[in-house]
Nucleic acid binder design. Structure first.
Lengths: 259, 259
DNA sequence: ACCTGAACACCGTTCAAGT
DNA sequence: ACCTGAACACCGTTCAAGT
C-alpha cells in the first residue's frame, strides 16, 4: 500500500518540497471533497483566524467536516501542512496578486521596485502573523517563496553591484523587513485580541509601567513606538519609521556603489 | 490566601513585568530549593537544550525534581515563565557580560559601538534560537531588555540625528539583526539536530532539489547562503553578508546626516 | 483509494487536599 | 507558605479496521 503522502522518501527530510512529488495535486474527486489545495486553503483561513498557537489538526479536521485522521492521508505531519500554508500565502507576493491593470511591476529603476517588494512583504507579514515564526523555522523553499526571491534578485541586479555585494544588500533590506513586519504584525494581533485600538493598547501599557520610571522612559523607544512629540498616533509613527528605515537602506546601497 | 504569583492584579495582563511586584525575588529558603531565579535558570538551560517546542512545564518540573504543579506557585503561566527566561538571557548583552577588563564599551564613536551592539545581539539570537519567536510574541520589557535598548538609544544619540531619524535608524539596524540572527540561529540548530555540518546540510539540500532546476537556481540565494564562487564555506559567506549589510546600514545612516 | 475510531503518550492548567 | 495527586480538556500521531 502506497500512501499518497509517502514518508519513506527520505529520513529526516528537511521540507515537504523535497519529497512525494507524485500525484499529490490531483483533481478533487473524493467523496469528502478533500484535497491538498483545499486543506491548505482552510488551514490558512484557520491560521489567520486563530493564530499559530490556536491551530490544531483536530480543529482543522472539524472545519473540513472530516475526522482528524483523514487529513493525514494528504499530508505526513502538521509541520508539512504548515509548510504548504506558508508557501501558499507567498502567492500574495506575485505581481498579479495586487497590482491593478496598467501598473507595471518593474522598469522604474531598482529603488522603486525594491520599495514595492519591501512594502508587499511587510504587508504579508502583517496580514498573516503566523508567517514570521514559520519562516524562521522552515527552509521556505516552496515554489511561490522561491519565485519571490528570484524577483528580488532580479531587481537587485539592476544596481550593478557585484554578486557578493548584492547578497549583502538583499540581506540588509529583507532581514529588516522581516523583523519590522514580525513585531508590527504581532502588536496588531495583540491589540485585536484585547479588543482595543493600537493607541489605547499603547497608552494602557505605558500607563501601567509608569510607576517604574526607567521602564516608562525606554519602553516605547525600544519597540519603536513611543510618541515622543505627542500628536501622532502609533500607526503614523510606525509608517514614518518604516519609510525612514527604507531610505537609510537605499542610501546605504547607493553608498556601496550602486548605479 | 494570597498566592505569591497573584493573577488577579490585572485582567488580560500584557506581561509578567506589569504584575506581582511583591516578594517574588526572595531568598531561597524553601525545602525543595525552589526559587524564581532557579526556575528561570533551569528553564533557560532546558530551552537551549530542547528548543521551544521541546520545552514543557512537566519536563521542567522533572528537571527540578519537583512535581509539575509546584512551579505554578512561582509563576502564573508558562508564558510568564518564558518572559522571565527571555529577559534573563538579555543579561548576556550587558557590557560586563563579555567584555574583558580594559575593553571600553563606548567612547570610540557610534560606528564602533553600534557594530558591537549588533554583533552581541546577533550572538544572543544564535546562542538561544528560542529568543527570536519569543521576542516576536511578547512585549519584551523586562529590565535587562530595557537596559539594552537604552544603551542602543544612547549610542545612536551620538549620531546627532534628531529623534525621529534616530528611531528609524535604530529600527533599520536592529530589525535587520533580528531577522539575520533568527534565520542563522535556526539553520545552525537544524544542522546540529541532523548531526551534520552546515556545509554538509547545505550541500545535501541543494543536491536534493537539483532535480527541480529553478529551485536549485534560486534556493541558496534566497536564504543568503549560496556559495556562488566555490571555495568559501557557508559560515564565511554568512560572515561576509553580515559585515556587508552592516556597512550598508552605517553608510545609510551617514547619508541621512549623521556626524 | 480513502476514511474512521480507538488508543498512546503527551500537553497546560484547575482544584481540593495535604503538611 | 509551599507542595502534591488526581482530574479536565486538550494535543499529534499510530494502528488496525472498515468501505
Amino acid at each position: 500500500m502506497v500512501r499518497q503522502a509517502d514518508r519513506s522518501a527520505r529520513t529526516a527530510r528537511a521540507s515537504v518540497w523535497l519529497a512525494d512529488r507524485t500525484g499529490k495535486g490531483r483533481r478533487n474527486d473524493q467523496p469528502s471533497g478533500l484535497d491538498r489545495d483545499r486543506i491548505t486553503a482552510v488551514a490558512v483561513r484557520l491560521l489567520d483566524a486563530e493564530g499559530l498557537a490556536g491551530f490544531s489538526m483536530r480543529r482543522l479536521a472539524a472545519e473540513l467536516n472530516v475526522t482528524a485522521m483523514s487529513v493525514y492521508w494528504y499530508v505526513d505531519t502538521k509541520d508539512d501542512l504548515l509548510e504548504l500554508a506558508l508557501d501558499a500565502v507567498h502567492g500574495e507576493l506575485e505581481p498579479s496578486a495586487h497590482a491593478g491593470p496598467g501598473t507595471p511591476s518593474a522598469g522604474q529603476g531598482w529603488r522603486t521596485d525594491l520599495r514595492a517588494l519591501a512594502v508587499a512583504y511587510r504587508a504579508l507579514l502583517v496580514r498573516h502573523p503566523w508567517v514570521s515564526p514559520l519562516t524562521g523555522s522552515f527552509l521556505n523553499i516552496g515554489p511561490r517563496a522561491v519565485a519571490f526571491s528570484r524577483r528580488l534578485r532580479e531587481v537587485m541586479g539592476e544596481t550593478g553591484l557585484e554578486s557578493h555585494a548584492r547578497r549583502g544588500a538583499i540581506s540588509s533590506v529583507f532581514q529588516f523587513v522581516y523583523g519590522f513586519g514580525t513585531i508590527e504584525g504581532h502588536f496588531i494581533q495583540r491589540c485585536a485580541a484585547a479588543g482595543v485600538t493600537q493607541d489605547e493598547y499603547f497608552r494602557d501599557a505605558l500607563g501601567s509601567i509608569g510607576e517604574q520610571p526607567e521602564l516608562a522612559e525606554t519602553f516605547g523607544e525600544a519597540a519603536g513606538l513611543l510618541p515622543a512629540d505627542g500628536g501622532d498616533c502609533v500607526e503614523d509613527l510606525r509608517e514614518r519609521d518604516f519609510a525612514f528605515a527604507l531610505d537609510v537602506l537605499i542610501a546605504g546601497i547607493e553608498a556601496q556603489g550602486a548605479r
